[in-house]
Computed example of a mutant assay.
Amino acid sequence: MRQKRSKMPDVPLLMTPGPTQVRENVRIIRALEMTNPDLDLKFFRFYRKTCFKLAAFMNTNSQVLILSGEGMLALDSACASLAEPGDRVLIIDNGLFGEGFADMVKAYGAEPVVFKGARTRGISSENLREFLNEDSDFKFATIVHCDTPSGVLNDLKEICPLLKAHGILTVVDAVSSMVGEPLYTDDWGIDICIGASQKGFSAPPGLAFLSVSPDAWDAIENRKTPIPSYYCNLLLWKNYFEDFWFPYTPPISDIYGFNAALNNVVKEKGTLKRHRRIAKAVRKAVIRSGLSLYLRSDYCSTVTAVNVPEGVDGEALIQRMKNETGILIGGNFGELKGKVIRIGHMGENARLEYVSETLKALQETLEKEGVVLNADMESVFLEEMVKKK
């Protein structure tokens, strides 16, 4: 059932691949009276309990920390805490965000070595295996589970154990995949697994979180040089509960809200199935209409990237759709800007009514731009959704 949305003017239906729509119970709890999170021991326990609940969801026994900042903070903190001058870091790159890890590690003096894959499909574990047989002298490797600009999904179940077999620590950006795709942090050998509040969990932006394995803590604690950051220094968090001391004042209302959003996810049965069905039906609707998908394979269940028809400016299309239908979908970055648009069907967005409305609005907007489609996307989507699975 469609959730009640804000009545504020100029607030569109958010169908972007993050931030996503926020359920009413999450919005309400953020308005509750708050205590002093630096001094109230009850909040320390609440924070730790939320971290334990999140660790269970991520299928890890490792310590989980919730940080005050957008998802990029956790990526930067992982790199700042692990990377040292002279370290070689393997950057597994088949997307814009995968590529971006190179700049992060370079900022801390490490040497990025890039393993490139095709942008329109997942990383080949066999090609990576061949590469590592020739060169595996890396302190850690970075990989994005779902690279949001394209929606490509990388097979962590194959890739991370392969890296660990060569003694390479693994840093995984799972910000866009979490909730919509399976994630087995410990079983897959992920040392630092990173997420954020504003995508599949459908809480407001502002929180990042990460799990830190014993191997990762060992590497961080045994650095030769000090961590060149305060805010991004994970060591400051390691014993926060034993010391009853946070390195900086936690955003208590954000954490209340995230805990409620996490409860929404944990209580739901069949979350992964819901995301898979929605994603498959969206792809079918796009293809039947005569539009084309950006990816050739390895689709993530949280976002669909669609090539913009020739002669249409994707960025202008998005603004027209927002202004005329009140629904906002995602644009893109870099070489994909104006050429590829994205429908975010993650978390609260991955609901039949929201997605059907979005496809209807997209079709209407494309047709106003002079694009002739072969089928009605909303009808194809709904037909696919009522099939027995």
Rank of each mutant, 00 (worst) to 15 (best):
Asn154Val: 08
Val265Thr: 15
Val11Arg: 13
Phe101Leu: 07
Leu262Gly: 07
Ser213Gly: 11
Leu39Tyr: 12
Met58Ala: 06
His275Glu: 08
Leu272Met: 04
Leu272Asn: 04
Ala219Leu: 11
Asp103Asn: 11
Arg23Tyr: 06
Ile194Asn: 02
Ala110Cys: 06
Arg27Trp: 07
Glu181Arg: 03
Cys193Asp: 13
Lys337Phe: 08
Asp254Asn: 14
Lys42Ile: 02
Cys300Pro: 00
Leu54Thr: 01
Leu65Arg: 13
Ser6Thr: 15
Leu272Asp: 07
Arg45Ile: 06
Thr185Ser: 13
Lys368Phe: 10
Arg288Lys: 15
Ile29Val: 15
Asp376Ile: 09
Gln21Phe: 02
Asp376Asn: 14
Tyr47Leu: 09
Pro161Thr: 00
Val266Lys: 12
Gly311Lys: 09
His345Leu: 04
Leu291Gln: 04
Trp217Ser: 00
Pro9Ala: 12
Asn332Leu: 05
Leu13Trp: 00
Ala260Asn: 10
Tyr47Asp: 03
Met377Gln: 01
Lys360Pro: 05
Thr185Asp: 11
Val89Cys: 08
Asp10Cys: 06
Phe52Gly: 06
Gly98Asp: 09
Asn59Leu: 10
Ile278His: 02
Arg121Phe: 05
Arg88Phe: 01
Glu353Arg: 05
Lys164Cys: 14
Leu39Phe: 12
Arg88Ala: 00
Phe241Asp: 12
Ala208Cys: 02
Arg129Met: 04
Lys116Ile: 10
Ile91Trp: 06
Ser253Thr: 11
Ala74Thr: 02
Lys7Gln: 14
Pro85Arg: 12
Gly370Tyr: 11
Leu336Asn: 14
Ala165His: 12
Asn239Arg: 05
Gly334Ile: 12
Lys388Ile: 15
Phe43Thr: 08
Leu65Val: 02
Arg5Tyr: 01
Leu317Asp: 09
Ala107Gly: 02
Val105Thr: 02
Pro226Cys: 08
Arg48Asn: 13
Thr271Gln: 04
Thr148Ser: 12
Glu383Arg: 14
Asp313Ile: 08
Arg88Ile: 01
Leu13Val: 02
Glu70Leu: 03
Met1Trp: 10
Thr302Gln: 02
Ser77Gln: 09
Phe258Asn: 03
Tyr108Ser: 00
Leu163Cys: 05
Gln3Val: 06
Ile327Cys: 10
Leu96Cys: 08
Asp93Ala: 12
Lys389Asp: 15
Met58Thr: 00
Val372Ser: 14
Lys238Glu: 10
Lys337Ala: 15
Arg342Gln: 04
Asp218Glu: 15
Ile194Pro: 00
Lys4Ser: 13
Asn307Val: 12
Met385Leu: 01
Pro12Met: 09
Leu41Ile: 14
Met385Tyr: 01
Leu32Pro: 03
Ile255Leu: 05
Ala261Arg: 03
